[in-house]
Design a protein around this nucleic acid. Structure first.
Lengths: 110, 110
DNA sequence: CCGCCTCCTATTGACATTCGATAGGAGGGG
DNA sequence: CCCCTCCTATCGAATGTCAATAGGAGGCGG
């Protein structure tokens, strides 16, 4: 009787890239931004967030530097790189293609 | 340089349920139907298909019986149960909600 | 100034899902 | 009779997400 996850696997990277395209941010700030962007539909947990950030940084799509948050805490700020912007565009197109295909399938009465 | 999977995790069950709501079918027939519904966007591999079918049957959303295919081969035919139809509706709504949230996020410039 | 709360980063182990590879039975055609 | 196709099926690997947990460090009330 496990509660089904709300987040489709594969969409987390896309949402993080999109959030960072709006402005650089630190980890928890990104999570909050994603929640805000999706009007509460997605809630990103730390156990998902940090592996994803490291993954994206290792791909070269983000870079990071330590700074101080708006609450005066030590925080690592992430920023979208140029190739990261390209990746955002690629993944966005990929999403359109897939979601369109599924939407058509759900309407279809072949 | 591995080819990224096309299939979003969690959507396979939905597509199978939808395919079976159109008509009962056997395994490979379902896979073909999904490919056809999505106009080739999704290609369901046996290694994904059969675990998914067993999973869905175990949940009580499908039932099955052995029969003979249109090519005169021994084939296990799957059929959507009544609770399976309910599940299809639930997952469809879930999909609408999620895809709408992502679509809005990708358009947003908050 | 002390203790607690909050903020922020981070890791670990468990778990579910998908894929690639592979196997094998059985019908049909050359 | 032999091979090709159809159909079901499983295994191991890889991936991604989550729950739980840890810990440092600033701020604030008492």
């Amino acid at each position: 009787m496990t509660e089904r996850s709300e987040l489709l696997q594969g969409t987390l990277d896309l949402l993080i890239l999109k959030a960072l395209s709006l402005q650089p941010n630190h980890g928890l700030g990104i999570a909050r931004r994603v929640g805000q962007m999706t009007q509460g539909t997605f809630e990103v947990k730390p156990g998902s967030l940090f592996p994803a950030l490291h993954r994206l940084e290792e791909q070269g799509w983000l870079d990071s530097k330590w700074g101080v948050s708006e609450n005066n805490r030590r925080a690592k700020y992430y920023r979208l790189t140029k190739t990261g912007l390209g990746q955002l565009r690629t993944e966005t197109e990929h999403w359109w293609r897939i979601s369109l295909a599924i939407n058509r399938s759900l309407e279809a009465v072949i």
